[in-house]
Design a protein around this nucleic acid. Structure first.
Length: 271
DNA sequence: AATTTGCACAACCGCACCGCC
DNA sequence: GGGCGGTGCGGTTGTGCAAAT
């Protein structure tokens, strides 16, 4: 049995707010504040429940609400905070002045989660393509590195990494010299990526490889891009050529630049 | 041009928590 | 300590609009 919504039960209005209702609510709160949300609609002459009034005020009418699209900085902050706090939207919102938990939640579900998944998939394709041996069947469908989200690497790094900060990625760990040692087994991505569609791995890889080599991975935020690039010896950057375009699109540029330095003598031709 | 599909976002619902009596 | 009301929070749904067919 489904409980009838309180507003409906009370004969109160539901659905989108009209500008007239907004004016009444704002005017009332400016004059009297909002000490008691339940009593407020009656006092203000609104046919809404207190909960609805509170939500409208908190998420839309409050004077300090920031309007417009989220900046990249804000989006990166959300991603980083979500990684630390999980779905605690109000806690995340507290770190972003003018943004509401509802807004952040919406942005996460409609933009950021999708982008992270895409980037995770692309990073995985690159990693698998460079680590699997073409002479043998494709390796395990779900190696530990499969679940390494690129932003994990970013979040664990210093702001201005240099190439010497990285050693090889082998097995299931990423070692960042003088920094943290990430062991993928110890990570719990279930919260950050609770419903990742594993079927993506059944798709054929975008690129083929003939080597089975370790590789260094560096993911940096857009803000750090120019500095990081300037610190990299060009020869250390793998130019993926046409394949690069097929693997990395604007989203990748937007969130991360992925530099892969193949170990040993790996050249472009490996791709 | 009409219809369908997908996206973005506002709004709602139910539960948990907290303070008061 | 338990009941109750108010509030906050996170998940979900509804709606409008634009793009695709």
């Amino acid at each position: 049995m489904v409980r009838a919504p309180c507003c409906e039960k009370m004969g109160l209005k539901r659905g989108p707010w009209t500008t007239e209702e907004d004016k009444i609510l704002v005017s009332h709160i400016e004059k009297n504040g909002h000490g008691n949300w339940r009593a407020l609609p009656k006092q203000a002459g609104l046919l809404r429940c207190g909960k609805s009034c509170r939500l409208r005020w908190i998420n839309y009418l409050r004077p300090d609400i920031k309007r417009g699209n989220f900046s990249r900085e804000e989006e990166e902050t959300i991603i980083n905070l979500h990684e630390m706090l999980g779905n605690r939207w109000s806690a995340i919102a507290a770190k972003l002045p003018g943004r509401t938990d509802n807004e952040i939640k919406n942005v996460w579900h409609t933009h950021l989660k999708k982008k992270l998944k895409q980037n995770q998939a692309k990073t995985q394709i690159i990693l698998q393509s460079t680590t699997c041996d073409s002479n043998s069947p494709r390796q395990s469908e779900s190696s530990d590195l499969d679940i390494l989200p690129s932003h994990q690497a970013y979040a664990s790094m210093s702001p201005q990494p240099s190439s010497s900060d990285f050693s090889s990625v082998t097995d299931a760990s990423v070692t960042l010299n003088n920094m943290s040692h990430i062991k993928v087994d110890d990570m719990d991505f279930s919260e950050s990526f609770p419903e990742f569609d594993e079927s993506i791995w059944s798709e054929p890889p975008l690129v083929e490889t003939t080597s089975n080599m370790p590789l260094d991975l560096l993911a940096v935020s857009t803000d750090d891009q120019s500095q990081a690039q300037s610190q990299f010896n060009p020869i250390e950057r793998v130019d993926l050529g046409d394949n690069y375009d097929s693997i990395l699109d604007d989203d990748m540029d937007f969130w991360y630049n992925l530099f892969i330095r193949a170990g040993g003598s790996t050249e472009l031709s490996e791709f």
